[in-house]
Every structure is written in C-alpha cells, then in structure tokens.
Amino acid sequence: MIGMGNRVRGDDAAGLAVADGLRSTESLALQGDPTSAIDRWCDFDRVVLVDATRSGRTPGAITRLSRSEITTVSPGPPRFAGTHSIGPVELIRLAEVLGVLPATIEVIGIEAESFAHGAALSRPVSESVARMIEELDHA
C-alpha cells in the first residue's frame, strides 16, 4: 500500500495516515519523489494507492478505482513538473508505458474536507482512514 500526500496540508495527509497505521500490510508513506514508487512496486503483485480527493462528494467518502477506471480521472493541467504535480493517475500512466505496472493496481481516494495549512485530519477523514486501515490489514 502506498500513501501519497502532504502532512502539513490537513486532509491531504489521509493516504500517509493509512500507510502509517497499517500493521500487517507492506506500506510506504510517499512524501518525496513520487516516481520512486515505481521502483518499489515492481516487487509486488497487488498495489493499492491511497490519496486524498477533491470531487465535491461528502468529506470522508471513499472512491475506489480499478485500473480500467483510472484513466477516466481528470489528471488536472497537462504538466509533469516533478514532485509537486505528478499524482497517482500520472504515476500509473507512466508505469504502464514503461511496462512496470503490478498485475493488480487500485486507487482509493478519501474525500477531503480541508487542505488547510497545519491542520489535523478532519473527523470524517480520520474515520475513513481507520476504516481503510482495518480493511487493508484484514484483506
């Protein structure tokens, strides 16, 4: 399981919080260069990426995207500017063209309430984080 996000931007840390909480699942809290994830997941058959979403749904809402659904997500402005703008969708596209995608890959989004600087996770997001940890550790 790979969590993506920023620890000092409120609910953007949701994916990292899931990675931190896992006990029996191999996990990585990815804060540095996102492309380094590609090297790590080569060794696994199944990879789950967890990141915060901003889709207008209820805070805490969980979105599950299979590999075929991932390409339907809008990746934002067409750029590839390194650490600040490559998200899970671009990462998966890059791995796909390089032929290094794991057999099963899934993206789980947790809808954020706030991306405020320095804020803790909001309550609905904390609850969804706990639910994801429970589910992934017992999968």
């Binding site: 260069d33 067409p78 596209r93 063209v97």
Partner: peptide, 26 residues
C-alpha cells in the same frame, strides 16, 4: 511530445535512465 509520459511510449529506455539517474541524485 506534450509530456514525459507520452515520450515514454516511444522512448521507454530513455525515460527509465532518467528516472534511475534522478533516483541516484535523490
């Protein structure tokens, strides 16, 4: 190409080299 992902389709080895070099810098 519009971006490196599109470039990687035709130049996968080049992009792989780039990613590995960057990782060594990191």
């Amino acid at each position: 190409y519009p971006d490196a992902i599109a470039m990687a389709t035709d130049y996968p080895d080049v992009v792989r080299d780039g990613l590995r070099l960057k990782k060594i810098g990191n």
